[in-house]
Simulated scan of single mutants.
Amino acid sequence: MIHHFITELKNRTLLIVLAWTSVMAVGYFYKEVLLFLLVKPNLCLFQQNSQYFIFTNLTDIFSTYLKLISFVGNQFFFAFLIYHLFVFLVPGLYFSEYKKYATFFRTSLTLWFFSIFILNSYLLPLSWKFFLSFQTSSDHSVLTFHLEAKIIEYLDLYINLYYICCLNFQLFVLLIVFVNYIKENLDLIKTLRKFFYFGFFLIATFMTPPDIFSQLVVGMSAIMIFELTIVIIILRIHVSKTF
Rank of each mutant, 00 (worst) to 15 (best):
M24P: 04
I159D: 00
T13C: 14
F178R: 13
D139W: 09
V23M: 00
Q215P: 06
S221P: 07
T144D: 01
R106Y: 08
E97A: 14
F55I: 00
K150D: 04
L174H: 07
M220V: 12
V177K: 07
N11E: 15
I164Y: 14
E184V: 09
Y154W: 00
F104D: 14
D60S: 06
V142P: 01
E148W: 07
Y52Q: 13
L14V: 06
F77P: 05
L202H: 00
F46E: 11
S127C: 04
N180T: 13
F46D: 06
L58F: 12
H140F: 15
I118M: 07
N74V: 07
S141Q: 13
V23T: 00
F117Q: 03
K31N: 01
Y30H: 14
V17R: 06
L175N: 13
A149E: 10
L167E: 01
P41R: 00
Y52E: 13
I151V: 04
I203G: 05
K100A: 15
H84S: 08
F200S: 09
F243C: 09
Q170Y: 02
I164W: 13
L188K: 02
L93K: 11
P210N: 11
L124G: 03
V23Q: 03
S96L: 02
Y163G: 04
L34T: 03
I223W: 14
I189F: 01
I116Q: 11
